[in-house]
């Protein structure tokens, strides 16, 4: 009788990481954690979408306007790439004209905070997806939380 070998988790880990980067929750969806995937998708998309709606895409997703904000936003790769393409295709206004696509204080501040936190929260979600892919479904801090818990053997190296 031939024994089936366990599939190498590396490919699945890479797939989950890339999917989670493109769309919040997609990595968890791939791993079969549908409930957690929905939670990540709703929470992160809400934060990012609210920031984008308040700030407008023109200056909010623009490395020339704010490179550190753009770096934080890159935590959600799918949204940020689409936003960057749209932002580059909007017309530029001269210094003397008031652009209808640009937000100003205090809206721009609120938008930046929402967008940056949305992107950084997705980094947490990506790390969680990578961990769950490698441990067979255990969350990032599971072993910290329950040191004496009965962890399935496939979850440990």
């Amino acid at each position: 009788m031939s024994m089936k070998q366990k599939p190498d988790p590396t490919i699945r880990t890479i797939q989950a990481g890339i999917l989670a980067w493109i769309l919040p929750g997609a990595g968890h969806f791939l791993l079969g954690h549908r409930g957690i995937a929905a939670v990540f998708f709703i929470a992160i998309s809400f934060a990012y979408g609210t920031g984008l709606a308040i700030g407008g895409v023109k200056n909010s997703v623009n490395p020339q306007a704010n490179r550190w904000l753009f770096l934080a936003e890159l935590g959600v790769g799918g949204y940020t790439i689409v936003g960057y393409v749209v932002s580059n295709n909007l017309p530029n206004y001269g210094a003397k004209e008031l652009s209808p696509y640009v937000s100003f204080y205090p809206e721009s501040d609120v938008a930046q905070i929402y967008l940056a936190i949305g992107g950084l929260l997705n980094l947490l979600a990506i790390l969680d997806a990578l961990t769950r892919a490698q441990t067979g479904g255990l969350p990032v801090f599971y072993q910290e939380m329950t040191p004496t818990a009965d962890v399935p053997s496939e979850g440990r190296k």
């Binding site: 709606a53 700030g55 407008g56 749209v86 937000s103 205090p106």
Partner: peptide, 8 residues
């Protein structure tokens, strides 16, 4: 939405 900024 997302093109024109929202006024709070």
């Amino acid at each position: 939405p997302f093109i024109h900024p929202l006024h709070l």
